[in-house]
């Protein structure tokens, strides 16, 4: 049977090799860009336009950690992403519970529609949001009640993130509830516990790790949002301070961009090192979160 043995070893080696390739490429994807953080050239300043001559700080990663605007962006991103994840949990956990525990007519269709959002391109999401809020009754409502959704910190940013974060969260929370053995719930109910108490004392604790993982998932997805924010909210960094509401100034979130959008804008401006600095900051945040999800051992359907 040595031929079979050899073939088995070969097969296993192949599987390991493929995994190694994927893991190494993933590492390489990040490591190979470290040199982008180092200024590649000294840029001569031109005197054609005075505003152009403002010196971009040409040093390691553009010195982004010393830029107060970066930290304001960080505040903004973390604050809105957390708010989004909380909102998503508030709506999504009951909805996930309903989808796993109650018979709702047309549940199959609802499942398909909800999960389709996950594979909707961000550009389509942003576009649909703009049309939803700027045409038809919702626009009239904004005009007459004197508020604005697109191009605002709140609720604009949160709305743009919520669509995909909720879709991701829902799938994870559904998986978490589906993983709870229904017998426990039946026992609790038959012992006279109300539905609310059953949920609170049985379903929730047994699904806890899955629910937390889903929350982190929604949070990371919200933080990773780019396209919808770009189309729906644009950038805020150059607006005059007076355009920002008081709470935004109190929380140090004025004149800041959403991190992923800010990264793109800096790269577009040709401020490459700074842009890559932000990109690495984002990678770090995502890495910690993903590790946390694995650590907690959450599961998520992909649908």
């Amino acid at each position: 049977m040595s031929g079979s043995r050899a073939r088995a070893h070969l097969f296993i080696a192949l599987c390991y090799a493929c995994t190694l390739v994927v893991v190494l490429s993933s590492c390489w994807l990040f490591l190979s860009n470290v040199d982008q953080l180092v200024p590649a050239e000294t840029v001569q300043t031109t005197d054609t336009e005075s505003w152009r001559t403002e010196t971009l700080s040409r040093r390691f990663a553009g010195g982004f950690w010393e830029d107060p605007a970066f930290w304001r962006s960080m505040n903004l991103s973390v604050f809105t992403a957390t708010l989004t994840a909380l909102l998503a949990a508030l709506i999504g956990i009951p909805a996930a519970y309903a989808l796993t525990h109650y018979r709702i007519p047309g549940r199959g269709i609802i499942d398909v529609l909800f999960s389709s959002v996950i594979v909707l391109p961000a550009s389509a999401v942003g576009l649909c949001l703009i049309i939803m809020f700027q045409y038809g009754p919702l626009h009239g409502l904004q005009e007459n009640l004197g508020f604005q959704v697109p191009h605002t910190l709140l609720p604009g940013l949160v709305v743009a993130q919520l669509v995909l974060a909720l879709a991701m969260g829902l799938s994870a929370w559904r998986a978490a509830f589906a993983g709870v053995n229904p017998r426990f719930e039946h026992v609790a109910r038959s012992l006279g516990s109300s539905r609310w108490r059953t949920f609170w004392t049985v379903s929730l604790p047994s699904a806890k790790s899955g629910l937390i993982a889903g929350f982190i998932l929604a949070w990371v997805r919200a933080l990773a949002e780019f396209g919808a924010v770009l189309i729906f909210c644009g950038t805020f960094r150059e607006l005059p301070v007076s355009r920002f509401p008081g709470w935004a100034k109190d929380l140090q979130m004025q004149q800041a961009d959403y991190l992923s959008v800010g990264m793109w804008v800096e790269i577009e401006f040709g401020n490459i090192e700074y842009g890559f600095g932000i990109a690495f900051a984002l990678v770090l945040i995502s890495a910690v979160s993903v590790y946390a999800i694995h650590r907690i051992g959450g599961k998520g359907y992909v649908w």
């Binding site: 626009h139 604005q148 697109p150 644009g234 005059p240 007076s242 355009r243």
Partner: peptide, 22 residues
């Protein structure tokens, strides 16, 4: 400048904002 409600990074962004009544 005090009236500015957006600061666009490219001109189509401004065009879209006018188009969508922003």
């Amino acid at each position: 400048r005090e009236n500015a409600s957006m600061s666009a990074k490219c001109i189509p962004e401004l065009g879209n904002a006018v188009q969508h009544k922003l």
